[in-house]
């Protein structure tokens, strides 16, 4: 299946080519996607799946939108 996936801030370099149509195995979890992109899990603070914060073991739906963030803050 295909998903869209982007990494942000200090993790931005892990955003893959073709990020809007990135192929992952059916039933892939957030952790699987993080690992496939070569992001160290310790660097990941928040992952959004379709705009909702998701745990590492959450399954990503087909066509899902994944955003991977380190710790960020501002205001």
């Amino acid at each position: 299946m295909h998903i869209s996936v982007k990494c942000f801030a200090t993790l931005a370099k892990h955003t893959p080519a073709g990020a809007d149509r990135y192929e992952v195995a059916d039933g892939a979890t957030v952790a699987d996607v993080v690992a496939a992109l070569g992001v160290a899990p310790a660097e990941v603070k928040i992952v959004f799946v379709d705009g909702v914060a998701a745990a590492l073991d959450a399954v990503v739906p087909d066509g899902g939108r994944v955003g991977i963030f380190p710790a960020v803050g501002g205001g």
Partner: peptide, 14 residues
């Protein structure tokens, strides 16, 4: 890291 690296606009994407 976050604020010195990107300023407060680090929030735009999240």
């Amino acid at each position: 890291q976050g604020l010195p690296g990107f300023g407060t606009s680090i929030l735009v994407n999240i």
